[in-house]
């Protein structure tokens, strides 16, 4: 039922890189997304390389400087339950807890959550769309209830990850291994918007894999959270989500990060809204102002204009909540 492919279990990161470099290789970690994509013919592969035997990828380690290094194979459950993540990076723990369903969280990995394919039902369905090399995006004139209101350009997917916005508010970096060695990319620059390249979701080049996520030490006094709104209370992607991080000094905001999920083809950072908060007292008025500013550039499609009041309400509610926390 799935197209024919070879299967190989990599013994090391190097082995995995070599494995997927041959032809059209794909990485198998948790497999929760890969198997669905293969079964639905979203893409094909001639080589599946399992990395589940690579021990060094299964870990959550504190780094000497007080940060955290999370191996790509750490499961979503492990992240949501990790005491150190819950304490120092609560938005990440909250985001992980909101992912999918318990079974999928047990099986799915952080690397996979960041590299997962979009959930657009045209992309996943029997439609030869732009992102699959076709000639049009069906969402433009189609059933675009769940599509983007920011950053759409030819293609109107929303980025499906809950953990990515949370990681971005903490300034996380992805460690990438490839044929040319290791490199690091900040997570904010890890995702590729359709304006740049419509058939790619990440900066990963052929043969490259994410091996770890590195979080810098959290800023002292930083408050952070992730909240997700969806049509169903489990096993559902975000209609709207927001990762928020605020630091105040003498009652006024000194640092702010607002990153949205369910809004754009990539995790969507709202720099203008962040700047607008700086210097303000985080009260209901500034929350309202920030929220209104957040959606001012939204460009809804035919069926997703609801996302504008939804994001507005969500951001306002979360700014108030976090300042009262």
């Amino acid at each position: 039922m799935t197209p024919g492919f070879s299967y190989r279990r990599a013994a090391s990161i190097k082995d995995a890189v070599t494995g997927i470099s041959e032809g059209n290789g794909r990485i198998l970690a948790g497999g929760t997304d890969l198997l669905g994509c293969l079964r639905d013919s979203v893409f094909t592969t001639n080589m599946v390389v399992s990395i589940t035997g690579i021990k060094e990828l299964k870990r959550i380690d504190e780094t000497p400087g007080g940060g955290l290094s999370i191996g790509a194979l750490a499961t979503i459950t492990e992240i949501s339950e990790s005491p150190v993540i819950r304490e120092r990076y609560p938005a990440l723990a909250q985001a992980a807890a909101e992912v999918a369903s318990p079974q999928l969280r047990n099986q799915g990995t952080i690397g996979g959550n960041l590299c997962q394919k979009p959930r657009c039902w045209y992309y996943r369905g029997e439609f030869h769309c732009l992102r699959k090399g076709g000639d049009r995006c069906y969402a433009v004139a189609g059933e675009n209830h769940y599509h983007c209101i920011f950053g759409g350009n030819g293609c109107y997917i929303v980025h499906p990850s809950d953990t990515a916005p949370a990681l971005i508010v903490y300034g996380a970096e992805a460690t990438i291994a490839g044929p040319a060695g290791m490199r690091k990319v900040s997570l904010e620059n890890f995702f590729v918007p359709p304006a740049k390249e419509v058939t790619k979701e990440t900066v990963l080049e052929a043969g490259e894999i994410v091996t770890a996520i590195v979080l810098p030490p959290p800023l002292a006094g930083l408050k952070s959270s992730y909240r997700k709104i969806r049509s169903r209370q489990s096993w559902d992607f975000a209609l709207a989500g927001v990762a928020l991080a605020l630091r105040t000094s003498n009652g006024r905001v000194t640092d702010a990060r607002i990153v949205l999920s369910g809004a754009a083809p990539v995790p969507w950072r709202l720099v203008d809204a962040e700047n607008a908060l700086i210097g303000k007292v985080p009260d209901p008025d500034s929350a309202k102002y920030t929220a209104a500013l957040s959606v001012k550039d939204a460009q809804p499609l035919k069926h997703n204009a609801y996302k504008i009041p939804l994001f507005k309400g969500l951001i306002e509610e979360e700014v108030v909540n976090i300042s009262q926390a």
């Binding site: 039902w121 369905g125 189609g142």
Partner: peptide, 21 residues
């Protein structure tokens, strides 16, 4: 408006209530 095909023909996109609903 385009193909007339059903777009949510799986248990993720067609949302049956879960125990949390």
């Amino acid at each position: 408006d385009q193909t007339g095909k059903m777009v949510n023909r799986n248990l993720h996109d067609y949302k049956l209530p879960t125990s949390l609903d």
